[in-house]
């Protein structure tokens, strides 16, 4: 048992994190072209709306919810001191979870049934959607079956994750958790691991920089002013467009 616990809660996280970082950097440098959201909206738009919108907004909320609980567990516990506030938090999170789940089911159904979308689907896409479906299903199960997750996450899982990142893994508490929760944790690391090999890389290039760049963009491939200057033989800058 100790072997499995060590493997899943110590080895797997580190393997996942290392492969994740090496993978995304290597892929970005070697096949930058493949960094794309690979949208299929052009082929089918109506069903996409009922899948993509709830799924993405839902998963963004869930991701940041988990992230906040990991980073500042104290504040979550403070918030949860009053039962009403705890209920509100849990209900909201569960609603977003359901939204994500329903959105993903819609996306999965669309991907399998629409003939055009099938043409731009490969096995990795299917595999990824199945894994995500399983993960969100487990999450919902935990929310229903092991109540007040926002509180025990802060107490049990935040220290565990912190111990991973401080290179001092403490898995005793995690090893005691029910199987459903353990599976949820394992799947989370597996998802992290497969990010570099799937279309999920698009979440790493979400265009936030759009918010602060000027609208128009002009690129000079070569600087004619410098060409005209006999004092400089070579250029000082290289083009930024590739």
């Amino acid at each position: 048992m100790a072997f499995y616990n060590n493997f899943f809660f110590t080895v797997l996280p580190y393997v996942a994190i290392i492969i994740f970082f090496i993978g995304i950097v290597y892929r970005f440098r070697a096949v930058k072209f493949s960094y794309s959201s690979l949208s299929s909206q052009f082929l089918e738009t109506r069903k996409l709306y009922w899948g993509s919108v709830p799924f993405h907004w839902g998963i963004i909320f869930l991701f940041f919810g988990h992230l906040i609980a990991f980073l500042v567990p104290g504040y979550i516990l403070l918030w949860n001191q009053q039962p009403l506030r705890l209920a509100i938090l849990e209900l909201t999170a569960f609603t977003f979870g359901l939204m994500t789940f329903i959105g993903l089911i819609n996306l999965f159904y669309r991907r399998l049934t629409n003939a055009r979308v099938r043409k731009v689907t490969n096995y990795v896409d299917i595999f990824l959607e199945v894994i995500l479906l399983a993960q969100i299903f487990l999450g919902l199960w935990i929310a229903v079956g092991y109540r007040w997750g926002s509180s025990w996450f802060a107490i049990v899982l935040s220290p565990y994750l912190k111990s991973i990142f401080t290179l001092n893994p403490q898995i005793d508490a995690v090893a005691m958790l029910p199987l459903v929760i353990q599976l949820h944790i394992i799947l989370a690391f597996i998802i992290l691991l497969i990010i570099p090999f799937t279309r999920l890389v698009h979440l790493l290039v979400f265009p936030l920089s759009y918010l602060w760049r000027p609208y128009q963009k002009v690129i000079w491939n070569w600087d004619r002013k410098k060409i005209r200057n006999p004092q400089t033989s070579w250029t000082l800058h290289k083009p930024r467009n590739n």
Partner: peptide
């Protein structure tokens, strides 16, 4: 102006 990634540009030359 609409490209969030900044992939589209006008060549200065």
């Amino acid at each position: 102006a609409a490209c969030p990634s900044g992939a589209i540009y006008k060549r200065g030359e």
